[in-house]
Computed example of a mutant assay.
Amino acid sequence: MAREPQRDRDEAESPDTHHTPRDIRDRIALRVVKTMRVFADAFFAERYGHRAVVLETVAAVPGMVGGLLRHLKAVRHIRDDQGWIRDLLDEAENERMHLMTFIHVAQPTWGERLLIMVAQAVFYNVFFFTYLFAPRIAHRIVGYLEEEAVVSYTEYLDEIDAGMQENVPAPRIAIDYWGLPEEARLREVVIRVRADEAHHRDTNHGFANRIMEGSDP
């Protein structure tokens, strides 16, 4: 199913917004993400398509985990979730569509597919318990992960514009999902994906702020 028109959200979202850590928990979240970035840079270098596949595999986890735990909490306490569950599940679905798109672009090897399975297994369990016991840190980690995703996709876009990455035709799944024109290329896909990541960044930092302020459901 195609998404609603994004109304040029790719231009409206600020691609370089950074949340300044407010306290030790925010700094811990930022340090965790920066450490993950070091390993990603070392492993993938400038293979941005392959980096995107692994990145989106991990990125599809938090929304589903958060949505599940928020759902159980809302049911357990018999109270409204104020729309958090739907936002989190929509995020998970969106990230999964990013993955399905870049699978067609990067064509990951079997070794990379094995890395995907291992990365998802480890990250799921770590994130599950983080969200269970420290949801604010969990959302902040996601916010910072999305900041790094925006940086990576901006670099990917720069490589395409410089002719260092081939601007291949957009996969059919991306054309249908984002409602892109039939002649769309990879550049348009990366712009849409970056806009999605910027939106998830702002959403998760907003959730973390609400938990910090005591205004979460």
Rank of each mutant, 00 (worst) to 15 (best):
V53G: 06
G111P: 02
I160S: 03
L114V: 05
V118S: 01
H98G: 08
V65E: 04
A138L: 11
V54M: 09
Y124A: 15
I24Y: 10
M36G: 10
G143L: 12
I85A: 01
F39I: 11
T20I: 12
A12R: 14
I211T: 03
D216G: 06
V58Y: 04
A170L: 01
T35A: 14
A138K: 08
R113C: 03
V53R: 03
N125E: 06
D90K: 10
V193L: 07
L88C: 03
L157S: 15
H200C: 08
G143I: 12
H98A: 08
M164I: 05
E147G: 14
E213C: 04
G143Y: 11
F43V: 11
R187I: 05
R210I: 00
K73M: 03
F102G: 01
E182S: 02
Y124P: 00
S215D: 13
D81C: 05
P21D: 13
V38A: 06
A12W: 14
L145C: 15
F128Y: 15
W178R: 01
R51D: 03
N94S: 15
G163V: 06
L55A: 09
I173S: 02
A2N: 14
V53S: 07
R76C: 02
N204C: 07
G206N: 07
D196S: 08
L89Q: 04
A59S: 09
F129I: 05
P217S: 10
H98N: 07
F43I: 11
G67A: 11
N204L: 01
E146D: 10
G83L: 05
D158N: 13
D10E: 13
D176W: 00
G206S: 08
M64G: 15
R7W: 09
F43M: 13
R96T: 10
I211N: 04
Q82Y: 09
D8L: 09
H50K: 12
T109M: 01
Y131M: 15
A138G: 11
E159M: 13
E11N: 12
G143W: 10
L115E: 03
S14C: 09
R172F: 01
